[in-house]
Design a protein around this nucleic acid. Structure first.
Lengths: 157, 157
DNA sequence: TATTGTTATACTCTATAACTATA
DNA sequence: TATAGTTATAGAGTATAACAATA
């Protein structure tokens, strides 16, 4: 009993083995957990990345941070506006190059980042646990790095 | 020489070990390759999934396919409109339940799917090669499945 | 002339509410 | 009353072009 002979013998891709499909679903699940975990703090993944980066290397200019995170500098403006309006970070006019803005955390921002890191640990540990431990996490990261290697990574501009 | 003593001793997350961040970047790279590979055929990932599913199980109704792929049925309409306008698939009024539409490939759609699968193989094989072979691909899929397990998968509705 | 930050804008994805026709 | 498909709409995320200030 054949139903569609025209596609007879065609090896259709199995959805559950497609790399891109699985990657997307897994990413959505992880981001969903992130959003739920940070719901109360009203923090989005991109804001998390920006605050982490400013905390690590205060004084970098907008363009550097945007580019490092793969965010167009045009879109970075409103993101940074939000962090500034919430009193978490601020822009300071560069004294050497007065076109550029160097980014810093405020005192409130530093306290916020402390709490953020704690909350983040709970999220990340949950993901690690789901993977089966840090060794499995490392294996995953290594495999993902292979996909990223040599490929252009959709830069900030 | 300490520069920001308020964050002293704080274990900031390392961007290159963050699961969600790496997942997103890897997914973007894979999708970018997909889009480039299918640029000439003008096929998006969602359309690819829908055509694959109709080819595999012709006659399913819209809602079933949308839900299975995590697409809201409201958003599925225009997607399906596109496939229909291109003459690749069509909706047929269900004869038992006349509210529902069962989905089928046209003859042109069947030929298109044959070509699509070939092109897809070139894309997927490139990703597998980048990972280091099918065994590594399987390891990746297995790890991603662990992230997906037990978690609600953002269904179609 | 080139670069930094900015504004305006547009396009894709995704999400919700409400309608219609059937059941 | 509930369901399948549809419409309209709104919100994120992301992309490009063009401008002012500065280099």
């Amino acid at each position: 009993m054949t139903k569609d002979t025209t596609l007879e013998g065609l090896d259709l891709p199995e959805r559950d083995a497609i790399i891109g499909y699985k990657l997307r679903r897994a990413q959505l699940v992880v981001f969903q957990d992130f959003l739920q975990t940070f719901g109360e703090m009203k923090l989005r993944p991109a804001e998390f990345s920006v605050l982490s980066m400013i905390a690590r290397q205060p004084g970098l200019k907008q363009t550097d941070i945007a580019e490092a995170l793969g965010i167009k500098r045009a879109n970075f403006v409103s993101l940074m506006d939000g962090l500034e309006e919430r009193g978490l970070a601020d822009r300071r006019k560069g004294d050497v190059d007065r076109r550029s803005h160097s980014l810093h955390l405020t005192d409130k921002g530093q306290r916020f980042v402390r709490e953020m890191v704690e909350v983040w640990n709970s999220h990340e540990n949950r993901m690690i646990e789901r993977l089966g431990g840090v060794a499995e996490r490392d294996r995953l990261i290594e495999l993902l790095d292979r996909l990223l290697a040599g490929q252009d990574v959709a830069d900030g501009d």
